[in-house]
């Protein structure tokens, strides 16, 4: 409770200093992000585009694979496979993200460059792909929990009608577990949007207004890291930008969380 209050207080207070110097219209609509140059521009859109692009790539990996794994583990897999796979997924989720970032930079990017030779050394694509793999465990394990909570009687009814396991999973279990699966997706999205180190390491840090994953770009999170690593004095306007960026990030994830809360309420099935 204290933490939330403190987070909001600090972010709003420090952002206030920033927004006193930079009108909010320029923050939202400027198409350049060069707060450290003499000719300073503060267009959050630039960072947002990087965040959204990399998150989109990550979710394109994580949501289909995570859902398939969840269906497989909950409806298809024999007991033994599940007993081994679930802890393994948890281990996968526990690997530090800096390690994933390193992997994206020195392993995946060279691999992708063999297919697309013009791919730059830092790009949103390989960072996004690895981020997707990182999120799979969260999506899979939460969706699986939701599907397992569906009462057996529903499945038995479906099987009694002669449905196969896949038909049962897609037409009976998944609709019944919608609210849980939706919140698993939302958590995945929050993770992707807030992920920092993979992007800081593998996506480069040049602010770049682009939705093309094959370019390098900065995200809200990697920009914060970049400034924190530098030696800007506390209280300068460049320094205050990271709080404004952080506030945007918090609002973004908060929106998703509220959406998830609403979805859970809207689609909850009571047995």
């Amino acid at each position: 409770m204290f933490t939330t209050a403190a987070i909001v207080y600090i972010l709003v207070k420090e952002s206030w200093i920033f927004f006193e110097a930079v009108p909010i219209r320029r923050f939202l609509f400027d198409t350049q992000w060069t707060p450290l140059f003499d000719d300073a521009h503060y267009g959050i859109m630039v960072l947002l585009s990087g965040t959204l692009t990399s998150s989109a790539v990550a979710l394109l990996v994580a949501i289909p694979l995570g859902t398939i794994i969840a269906i497989y583990l909950s409806e298809f897999a024999p007991f033994k496979v599940r007993e081994i796979a679930k802890p393994f997924l948890e281990l996968l989720g526990g690997v530090p993200t800096i390690v994933y970032g390193y992997f994206a930079l020195v392993f995946l990017t060279p691999l992708l460059q063999k297919i697309y030779p013009e791919l730059p050394g830092f790009n949103l694509l390989s960072a996004g792909l690895i981020m997707g793999v990182m999120i799979i465990p969260y999506v899979a394990s939460l969706s699986e929990d939701a599907m397992r909570a569906v009462p057996m009687a529903l499945r038995e009814g479906s099987y009694a009608m002669g449905a196969t396991r896949l038909q049962t999973a897609l037409r009976v279990v998944m609709p019944a577990a919608t609210s849980g699966i939706a919140s698993a997706y939302i958590l995945g999205i929050s993770r992707a949007v807030g992920e920092t180190m993979i992007l800081a390491v593998a996506a480069g840090m040049q602010p770049n207004l682009t939705f093309n994953p094959a370019e390098s770009g900065a995200t809200i999170t990697s920009y914060i890291v970049q400034v924190a690593l530098g030696d800007l004095p506390h209280g300068s306007i460049g320094y205050q930008t990271i709080f404004a960026a952080g506030l945007s990030l918090l609002l973004l994830t908060l929106t998703f969380n509220l959406l998830g809360h609403w979805l859970r309420k809207r689609f909850r099935e009571v047995y």
């Binding site: 807030g194 924190a228 990030l249 994830t253």
Partner: peptide, 19 residues
């Protein structure tokens, strides 16, 4: 609140601590 805190990106905690 506690549920929501789990969804806050870790870097935001960093900013909190910085301030």
């Amino acid at each position: 609140n506690i549920t929501n805190l789990a969804g806050v990106p870790s870097i935001v905690y960093g900013l909190l601590a910085l301030g």
